[in-house]
Amino acid sequence: MPSATYEPELDTTRPFRIRWTRNDCERFERDGLLTPGKYELIEGDILRKMPQKRPHLFATSLTLSLMNRIFGEDYVQLPGPIDVSPEDNLTSEPEPDVTVLARPLAEFSATNPRPDDIRLLVEISDATRYFDRGTKANLYARAEIVEYWSLDLVQRKLHVHREPRDGKYQSVTVHGENQSIAPLAAPDQAILVSALLPPKSE
């Protein structure tokens, strides 16, 4: 009698994923389960912020100082939440390292800056550099934020994202530490990339 051979069934079930919302995070904060400033909500995922290492802190301070000099302290936001596109707002509330605003910071005492309030975003990237140039760049492009910089502390390069269209930045240029770049909002203010970077470690 012929014997029957059965192939094992393939489990094609996708892993169970909960997509958290801003309302969920606010509730978790009230219940003491999350601490403001210690996490980001990105595309429904609650991401714990890693403690800043000295190079990240140093680069953030340099970038903040330069942006304050160019745009004025009243127009530069420290690491803090922003709004993104309406379709992403429910499940995302990113907190870029530096945000250059089109209106004075005092006007955002109770609400997040919206995409049309933002002239430039800067993320200081080390362990998160691929995430910042991928998931976050697409999030910012969908919001049509006109310019986004990702400063890579590992490769010591600045990735400049411009021309958001169809959910992607159409122009992405990479600048080495000996090159200069001027923000779109201040075209006469060229910045040497090395001025944003901590000294090279020996």
Score class of each variant (00 low, 15 high):
22 R>P: 00
166 D>W: 12
93 E>P: 00
113 P>F: 08
141 A>F: 07
181 I>D: 02
135 T>G: 03
147 E>N: 09
69 R>F: 14
98 V>G: 00
192 L>R: 11
97 D>T: 14
73 E>C: 15
39 Y>K: 02
194 S>W: 08
141 A>E: 01
57 L>C: 10
156 R>I: 02
34 L>Q: 03
40 E>T: 04
11 D>I: 15
190 A>K: 12
158 L>I: 05
163 E>R: 12
14 R>Q: 13
39 Y>H: 13
126 D>T: 05
176 G>I: 15
145 I>N: 01
64 L>R: 11
76 V>G: 07
20 W>H: 11
131 F>T: 07
147 E>W: 08
23 N>E: 04
64 L>Q: 06
65 S>G: 07
102 A>N: 03
56 H>Y: 08
46 I>Y: 04
188 D>Q: 15
33 L>D: 10
95 E>F: 05
34 L>Y: 05
84 V>R: 06
159 H>A: 05
43 E>D: 10
141 A>H: 08
69 R>C: 15
93 E>V: 00
183 P>R: 15
8 P>E: 15
22 R>D: 00
30 R>D: 14
9 E>P: 10
157 K>S: 01
125 S>Q: 13
172 V>K: 14
162 R>Q: 05
160 V>Q: 01
130 Y>V: 15
165 R>Y: 01
19 R>K: 13
163 E>A: 07
45 D>K: 04
156 R>S: 08
41 L>D: 01
103 R>D: 14
193 V>R: 11
194 S>C: 11
72 G>E: 09
27 R>P: 02
117 D>S: 01
30 R>V: 15
137 A>F: 15
92 S>Q: 05
55 P>E: 05
4 A>G: 01
174 V>T: 12
9 E>Y: 04
58 F>H: 13
136 K>I: 06
31 D>T: 09
101 L>C: 07
189 Q>S: 15
168 K>R: 04
168 K>W: 02
151 L>G: 00
27 R>L: 08
49 K>R: 09
14 R>C: 03
28 F>S: 10
80 G>V: 07
57 L>P: 04
177 E>V: 12
14 R>V: 10
166 D>K: 09
